[in-house]
């Protein structure tokens, strides 16, 4: 048994190479262990005091979000709210203030839940995960990283150190909406993220990704036909139909598969509408769920 509090990335990577599991806020690891889902790993290295993992760096071409950035920060950080708004929408919906204070984007990504809130926003914003070992680092697309519910393709000695996002062109907007039955401590029934760039009134690019309707977060395929067209009722109907058609949801205590298949279309449509409104310069406060009135009345 060992527990180390790392203060540098090199120290953490050495511990991980020697077999330790990283722990940031512990909001998945400790909760899961206490629920009896698995034993708490015997060798742990705390990575929540490594300053270099808690930075958001805006470069010329891309923005790096350190894996240790908490949800509390993501929902309020100016860079994220202004440029990668769907991530802020998602972070603001995670758990409660205390969950958001300890939970990190790196932990959310590597926990690899198909119901994770930051996943669909990262996908539509073109994010790659930076995986680092003592001997080097690589970038991996999220579709390659996530291999199933709670499963990912990273090696045991690789630490997710950042999420790398291409900077957004002008006239872009993004949004994440989630179907929820209550406004706190909720897990997505279904959710959808959209990122849209406009050319005048027409769509220049559009990506839509879906939460909790497949073994992993999935991106909706076949939306290229919308490019050059306005986001009108016909376009929105196509997005909803594609989302519902490509979803392969399960039934569980939160919803039936049929309900999920229907509502994911509604959520995809609402996400696209909100993303387009933001792309056209309208400010919709984070999280967009509140502006749209989704969730139980307060």
């Amino acid at each position: 048994m060992s527990f180390t509090i790392a203060t540098s990335l090199d120290e953490a990577l050495a511990s991980i190479a020697a077999g330790a599991r990283p722990i940031a806020g512990g909001s998945d690891l400790v909760v899961g262990a206490r629920q009896g889902k698995f034993d708490l790993p015997a060798e742990l290295v705390a990575i929540d005091r490594i300053e270099s993992l808690a930075t958001i760096d805006v470069g010329a071409d891309e923005t790096s979000i350190g894996s240790g950035v908490t949800h509390s920060r993501l929902m309020e950080d100016g860079v994220i709210v202004d440029n990668f708004t769907a991530i802020a929408d998602a972070a603001a919906l995670v758990g409660s203030p205390s969950t958001r204070n300890v939970g990190t984007i790196g932990g959310n990504v590597m926990n690899s839940s198909p119901a994770m809130d930051t996943g669909a926003p990262l996908v539509v914003l073109g994010a790659e995960a930076e995986l680092t070992t003592s001997s080097g680092r690589r970038r991996v697309g999220l579709d390659e990283l996530w291999t199933g519910p709670g499963q990912h393709s990273a090696a045991a000695d690789e630490l997710c150190t950042a999420l790398l996002l291409p900077n957004r062109p002008a006239n872009s907007g993004s949004a994440y909406v989630r179907l929820e039955y209550r406004r706190a401590m909720e897990i997505a029934v279904v959710g959808a993220a959209a990122a849209i760039t406009l050319d005048g009134d027409n769509i220049d690019s559009i990506r839509v990704a879906l939460t909790a309707v497949a073994p992993t977060i999935i991106e909706v395929a076949g939306l290229d036909s919308l490019v050059g067209r306005p986001l009108d009722d016909a376009s929105l109907a196509e997005i909803a139909e594609a989302a519902s058609g490509q979803a392969t949801p399960i039934s569980d205590l939160r919803a039936s598969d049929a309900y999920r298949r229907h509502t994911i279309g509604v959520m995809a449509r609402r996400a696209a509408e909100a993303a387009a409104r933001r792309a056209s310069g309208e400010t919709i406060a984070v999280p967009v769920n509140r502006a749209l009135g989704i969730g139980a009345a307060s």
């Binding site: 527990f3 722990i23 512990g26 909001s27 400790v30 909760v31 206490r34 742990l44 509390s72 203030p97 205390s98 969950t99 204070n101 300890v102």
Partner: peptide, 9 residues
């Protein structure tokens, strides 16, 4: 900052 101490080591 508030933290759930039941689930924090």
């Amino acid at each position: 900052s508030p933290v759930n101490s039941c689930s924090y080591l």
